[in-house]
Simulated assay, not measured.
Amino acid sequence: MNVHAAGDLRTTGLTHPNGAPLRLNTQDFVAIDRDRNATFEATYRPQALYNRANEGFHANNETFLLHEVATNLPIYRPDTGPTDFHLHLPPGGFQLVLVTSGAFTFDYDGRFYNVGPGAVMLQSAIVHRQLFYTWSGLSTEENLKTPQTVVPDPVSMGYSGKFLEAFITDPTTFPNPTIVGPDQIDEAETPRVAWSHPLHDRPANAGFWLQDPLALDALFKPLADNSIKSALPVYVRDIGIEAPSGQLVAGHIIATDPRGGSLLPKSTSSSADAASFAKGEVVIYRVIRGTAEFKNKTGETFELAAGDVVTAGKSSVSLVAVGENTQVLRLGLLKGMNDLRSWTPTQRDEIDGLAGQIITQKDIRPLRTEGKPVGYLYA
């Protein structure tokens, strides 16, 4: 993802990140990114356009980036297609992906994962690549307007692939080494990482997490109280990232069905209350579809529509109402993020320069569906 000068690989002496400490903005603040002001840019790869929630990123001391990734070119072009094998090494090892349209095939640590709308993936420094994505054939303008959802259905899976992605800090400030370039990949032998350098900037319990949108732990539970107003019943899905992130971030989706229909996969065995998704020193709400109304501490209300994002201090805003056929992602950034430090530019460049030299183990998986993970950075 990044292109930096290679360091002197004989004298790196790499340790923990030793840059400035991360600090969440715990003041009373509200920052709104409106979809009408979005700028989609091909920042990292030509086939994908990135729409960053920049207002929230800057207001929160640039500690957490949420952006939308929209596939915009066919996979068969010579400058697109499958990606290389690479690593992301943000502070805390945190990368979150929530698929919102189309379909993708990802290769995490040599295992294939075919995912569609509503799939959640969280990983901490694992060798991976993107193998496949859908492309609708629509123009860029039309493609960026296609609806998004967290519920898999034939219509949404036929659109171009899109997902919401989140990192701790900006991807340009941390190492993203290319492990094996696309021209050097041998499909019969998938490289892995078992790196001996003590770069343990990941919480002890953090690891890989995949939540299928139709799995039992992903079912939407009815909201038991009346804390969020709606003409239709309100449901909550815990996307399960708090534990695998090492208690860095909690995540939930608050949603309603379309009027006269039943879209959300639900559980009737238990219910949810507002306290179950109230965590966060800083909170981020991203409207995936529909509309949502918020209230600030002075009692003023404002409405967000699909594609809008609000980033706010712990008690600076509250979600008070949602419309029909609405889906809202809520992320709560937890205190543990303040224990992390950023990479210095020198460290970042040294690690990017190592590239494939950090591989010390390989594993052959003919079926790509078997075997235990071996590619964690922290073996």
Results as ranks from 00 to 15, higher is better:
L214Q: 11
L214H: 09
L214I: 13
L214D: 11
L214N: 12
L214M: 14
A215P: 06
A215L: 11
L216Y: 07
L216N: 13
L216C: 03
L216H: 13
L216A: 13
L216D: 15
D217T: 14
D217I: 06
D217W: 02
A218Y: 04
L219W: 01
L219G: 05
L219A: 09
L219K: 15
F220G: 10
F220Y: 15
F220A: 14
F220C: 11
F220W: 08
K221V: 10
K221Q: 15
K221H: 10
K221F: 07
P222K: 12
P222A: 12
P222L: 10
A224H: 14
A224P: 03
A224G: 03
D225W: 04
D225L: 10
D225K: 09
D225E: 08
N226T: 12
N226K: 11
N226W: 04
N226A: 12
N226D: 15
S227V: 07
S227L: 08
S227K: 02
I228Q: 11
I228W: 05
I228H: 05
I228A: 11
I228M: 10
K229D: 14
K229S: 14
S230K: 05
S230D: 07
S230C: 13
S230H: 11
S230L: 06
A231Q: 13
A231I: 12
A231S: 14
A231K: 13
A231D: 14
A231P: 02
A231F: 06
L232R: 07
L232T: 11
P233M: 12
P233G: 08
P233S: 14
P233A: 12
V234Q: 04
Y235G: 02
Y235S: 07
Y235F: 15
Y235A: 01
V236A: 03
V236T: 05
V236L: 06
V236G: 01
V236K: 03
V236R: 01
R237V: 00
R237C: 04
R237Q: 13
D238I: 04
D238S: 13
D238H: 13
I239N: 02
I239F: 02
I239H: 01
I241L: 03
I241F: 04
I241T: 06
I241Y: 01
E242I: 08
E242F: 02
E242D: 10
E242W: 00
E242R: 15
E242H: 04
E242M: 11
A243G: 10
A243L: 11
A243E: 13
A243T: 11
A243Y: 03
A243I: 10
P244Y: 00
P244K: 02
P244A: 10
P244W: 01
S245F: 01
S245H: 05
S245E: 04
G246D: 00
G246A: 02
G246E: 00
G246T: 00
G246Y: 00
Q247H: 15
Q247L: 12
Q247G: 06
